[in-house]
Design a protein around this nucleic acid. Structure first.
Lengths: 168, 168
DNA sequence: TCTAACGTTTACGTGAACGGCAAGGTTTGG
DNA sequence: CCAAACCTTGCCGTTCACGTAAACGTTAGA
């Protein structure tokens, strides 16, 4: 029995880059901004990442690409990396049940705030869709006028036809 | 009755800026990128905007701020400004009913594609929410373990609670 | 042990999206 | 007709989010 309890297999920066679709430079840059720190460093100062880091990087990428958040916003969303590291260590470092519960509850709160932020963005986008559909209706109204052979009624079509309910 | 059929009241760039929440510099920059062109120019080359331009600028701002699209993407979304100008002129310039119908139909197609693009972004964001809720469930699972006084089952919680639908 | 492949820090370069200023022309009220 | 306020076209500066190259140390395998 010479093996450690579990060998989490730490990855070096290029492997992480390949796995996440980011570049090594980008990952280092994110560290510089305080978005994440590698789980460990090798003897010779190589950055070493665990699977939790991988998840985090993928999450960051989603926030950047899909949600279009600025890195500064993402930093806010992820809360301070120091706090995360502290929590990790606190969790590993205590056997106190109450303390552990508190830490996990905090983590849940953070996730909830993340969801709320993304949800807010979804709401704004849905408002845009609604608006665009309004412009669509406007155009459809014009088309109906043309089909009827009437004059386009240049003075603003005032909320024309019924709206078949929210499509999609 | 000395008034022209309708006096659309054209605005100069600063008024437009105030109305849209953009700066004059930004509006000129957008024109430089081909996102929009003023409806007209004054005798002395002042840019003059109509209400359609206002709507367009507000839409651009929404795409930029709310959706987080890059201006290059927005340009794609709005189709080429030249095409828009051509259509405008074609519409004003023809009395042919068929032609007008075709133009309006094209415009509707463009709006539909805009909606589809935004909807795609909404879908990606909802996937992120689903994912975040997964992480939440994971944490809640830990919490339940702690509440039960058991060991956290360090070897990866294997898909704990019910999971509605296919993520990803 | 040696070296090819990979990593480190440091630093300058780049494209996107504007900000800001200069030098001059335009509009409009008095 | 004249000045204040607004506009024009350059053009250089700045921030963000990295790219890229230099000079050097580390790791793993033959």
């Amino acid at each position: 029995m010479t093996d450690t309890p579990s060998a989490p297999r730490l990855l070096r920066i290029q492997e992480v880059a390949a796995d996440t679709g980011l570049t090594a430079r980008t990952i280092r840059y994110y560290e510089e901004l305080g978005l994440l720190a590698p789980a460990a460093r090798s003897e010779g100062a190589y950055r070493l990442y665990d699977t939790e880091d991988l998840e985090r990087l993928r999450f960051i990428r989603g926030l950047r690409d899909d949600a279009g958040f600025a890195l500064a916003d993402i930093r806010q969303l992820l809360e301070d990396e120091d706090a995360r590291a502290r929590n990790r260590e606190r969790f590993r470092g205590t056997a106190d049940e109450d303390e552990r519960r508190r830490i996990v509850r905090d983590a849940i709160g953070i996730v909830d705030r993340q969801v709320a932020t993304i949800q807010a963005k979804i709401n704004r986008l849905e408002a845009m869709v609604t608006e665009a559909e309004g412009r669509r209706d406007h155009l459809v109204g014009h088309l109906v006028d043309l089909e009827a052979g009437r004059e386009p009624d240049h003075t603003h079509t005032p909320a024309r036809a019924a709206h078949p309910g929210t499509p999609r």
